[in-house]
Amino acid sequence: MQLINIGYGNMVSAARVIAIVAPDSAPIKRLIQESRDKGTLIDATYGRKTRAVVIMDSDHVVLSAVSPETVCGRAAEEEVEEDE
């Protein structure tokens, strides 16, 4: 199982990730609020500013304090290591 580091020692399963997006747009903010209301929001920011929103296939939404570019880069690094 391949894991992606989303910051501060938190990991998510790479196989379950649908998208990694920035939290700035209104539709993403709405998605976060709906997920919070349903109880499927996972806040992994440790009180810091949310910089990336990870959308999972299990209908969970994970908030990360690391930028989307950094999370994607870490996912790509893990994929290269797995291929070797």
Score class of each variant (00 low, 15 high):
Pro23Trp: 10
Pro23Tyr: 08
Ala65Ile: 00
Arg48His: 07
Arg48Asn: 08
Glu84Tyr: 10
Leu63Gly: 04
Asn5Pro: 06
Asp37Thr: 13
Ala76Lys: 12
Ile55Gly: 04
Ala75Leu: 10
Val61Asp: 02
Met56Val: 03
Gly47Gln: 02
Asp43Trp: 04
Arg16Tyr: 10
Glu78Lys: 12
Tyr8Ser: 15
Glu34Tyr: 03
Pro27Ile: 03
Met11Arg: 14
Ile28Tyr: 03
Gln33Cys: 01
Ser58Asn: 15
Ala75Asp: 04
Ala19Glu: 14
Asn10Cys: 10
Ile6Pro: 05
Val61Trp: 03
Tyr46Gly: 00
Ile20Asp: 12
Cys72Gln: 15
Ala44Asn: 10
Glu34Cys: 11
Ala15Lys: 15
Ala65Ser: 13
Gly7Lys: 08
Gly73Leu: 08
Asn5Ala: 13
Val80Met: 11
Ile4Pro: 04
Asp59Pro: 00
Val71Trp: 04
Glu69Tyr: 10
Tyr46Ile: 01
Ala75Glu: 06
Ala26Leu: 13
Asp57Trp: 01
Ile32Val: 13
Val62Glu: 01
Ser67Gln: 06
Glu34Met: 13
Arg16Thr: 10
Gly47His: 03
Thr45Phe: 01
Val17Trp: 11
Met1Ala: 15
Glu69Ser: 15
Lys49Cys: 01
Ser13Pro: 06
Ala26Thr: 08
Pro68Arg: 09
Ser25Phe: 02
Arg51Ile: 00
Ser64Val: 02
Arg48Gly: 06
Gly47Leu: 02
Thr70His: 05
Arg51Cys: 01
Val17Ile: 15
Glu82Gln: 11
Arg16Gln: 15
Gln33Thr: 03
Arg48Met: 03
Ile55Lys: 07
Ile6Asn: 10
Asp43Met: 03
His60Gln: 08
Ile18Asn: 13
Val80Gly: 05
Val66Lys: 11
Gly73Met: 09
Val53Ser: 04
Glu78Gly: 14
Arg74Leu: 05
Glu82Thr: 06
Met56Ser: 09
Ala26Phe: 05
Ser13Arg: 14
Ser67His: 09
Asp59Cys: 06
Asn10Val: 06
Met56Asn: 06
His60Phe: 03
Val12Pro: 09
Ala14His: 11
Ile28Leu: 07
Asn5Asp: 15
Thr45Arg: 05
Ile6Leu: 09
Gly73Cys: 11
Arg36Asp: 07
Leu31Gly: 08
Val53His: 05
Leu31Ile: 05
Glu81Ala: 09
Pro27Met: 06
Ala19Arg: 15
Asp83Cys: 08
Glu79Lys: 15
Gly9Lys: 09
Leu63Gln: 07
Val71Gly: 08
Asn10Glu: 12
Glu81His: 06
Glu81Arg: 14
Arg48Cys: 01
Arg51Ala: 04
Arg30Ile: 03
Pro23Ala: 13
Lys49Met: 04
Asp57Ser: 12
Gln2Trp: 06
Gly73Lys: 12
Glu79Met: 12
Arg51Pro: 00
Ala14Gln: 15
Leu63Lys: 04
Val80Pro: 00
Ile18Met: 14
Met1Asn: 12
Ile4Glu: 07
Gly7Ser: 12
Lys49Val: 02
